[in-house]
Computed example of a mutant assay.
Amino acid sequence: MNLDLTGRRALVTGSTGGIGYAIAEALAELGATVAVNGRTPARVEEAIGRLSGAMPAGRFEGAPGDVATAEGAEALVSGLGPVDILVNNAGIFEPKPFFEIPDGDWQRLFDVNVMSGVRLSRALTPGMVERGWGRVVFISSESAVNIPLEMIHYGMTKTAQLAVARGLAETVAGSGVTVNSVLPGPTLSEGVETFLRQMAGDRPDADLEALGKAFVAEHRPSSIIGRLASVEEVASLVAYVCSPAASATTGAALRVEGGLLRSII
Rank of each mutant, 00 (worst) to 15 (best):
N146K: 13
V112H: 10
L149A: 12
S140Q: 09
M151T: 03
T157A: 04
D103K: 12
M115G: 04
R122I: 08
G127Y: 04
L109M: 15
N89G: 06
F138P: 00
A144V: 03
P102Y: 02
L86R: 02
V118P: 05
L124D: 01
N89E: 04
G81L: 07
I152R: 07
V83H: 05
A160K: 14
R119T: 07
F138M: 00
L109E: 12
I152W: 04
F138G: 00
V83P: 08
W106D: 13
I147A: 09
P102K: 00
F98T: 12
Y154D: 01
N113P: 09
M156R: 14
V112C: 10
V164H: 01
G72K: 10
N146F: 05
T125V: 15
I139K: 02
G72W: 04
A70D: 14
V114K: 12
S141D: 03
M151A: 03
R108K: 15
M151Q: 09
G91V: 00
V136D: 01
A70S: 13
N146W: 07
M156Y: 12
A123M: 07
T125W: 01
V145F: 10
T157F: 05
V112W: 08
F138T: 00
V164C: 03
L80E: 01
V118M: 11
S116T: 00
A70H: 09
W133P: 13
S78A: 15
R131T: 08
L86Q: 02
E94D: 10
E150C: 07
F99L: 15
I139G: 05
M156W: 10
G134S: 04
V136K: 02
Q107S: 11
